[in-house]
């Protein structure tokens, strides 16, 4: 296995995260402790080598905060929904495996979308096709194709949020054209929402 030099700037987010974990576990954010943590983080990142995560270089805090709010809201709703289903439907539950094609090709975005989905509503990623960036989700309580369509649009909405937060510029441009088309369609149909 060849080992490339990673530029320090791509390593930086990882090291900052490791230092935060170090400080949090010691419950001590004094400068001495942080510097020592930084040294350990640097040593760990270089001795125990892993391929670097390719970030897109964008991070939009304005969208990130409402996303966290939406995430926690959905988490609460989904948890109670699962509880309710387990109490009322129990063994007579009907599920489905739904394929959802995502817009983005970036590894980071497919991973975060899958992560958020596995945590949010009654959905669970069971297979990923990287070449077409398609997620195969197992969803609870899907009986009609209409339910599946709802899940699909929900997934793509989650992805749109994540693209707005940290997607690449290309993905963002794609999203904006899509929005424009949707808007034009809405106008043509006299304001009828899709």
């Amino acid at each position: 296995m060849t080992r490339e030099r990673i530029p320090f700037i791509t390593e930086l987010p990882l090291i900052i995260w490791l230092v935060i974990v170090w400080g949090a576990l010691w419950q001590d954010f004094s400068p001495g402790n942080l510097i020592f943590g930084g040294l350990i983080a640097y040593a760990v990142a270089n001795l125990l080598y892993l391929p670097p995560v390719e970030l897109s270089g964008r991070f939009n805090v304005l969208y990130a905060v409402p996303f966290v709010g939406r995430f926690i809201y959905k988490l609460v709703v989904a948890s109670f929904e699962v509880f309710w289903l387990s109490l009322t439907r129990g063994p007579r539950l009907v599920n489905a495996v739904v394929a959802v094609q995502l817009r983005s090709q970036s590894d980071l975005l497919v991973t975060t979308t899958g992560h958020a989905l596995s945590l949010i509503p009654g959905s669970l990623v069971i297979e990923v096709d990287r070449s077409t960036s398609t997620l195969y989700l197992h969803c609870l309580n899907i009986e009609t194709p209409g339910d599946a369509a709802k899940i699909r649009s929900d997934v793509r909405a989650t992805e749109a949020w994540l693209i707005r937060i940290m997607g690449t510029r290309d993905d963002l441009a794609l999203l904006q054209t899509e929005d424009r088309f949707a808007q034009e369609n809405d106008n043509r149909e006299g304001g009828v929402s899709k």
Partner: peptide, 22 residues
């Protein structure tokens, strides 16, 4: 309860993962 009552592995998985996080 989800572990007890859901019919197959994948459904039980939903019950096991999500409520834990909350």
């Amino acid at each position: 309860v989800g572990l007890l009552r859901f019919p197959d592995l994948l459904a039980r998985m939903h019950a096991a993962t999500k409520p834990q996080v909350l």
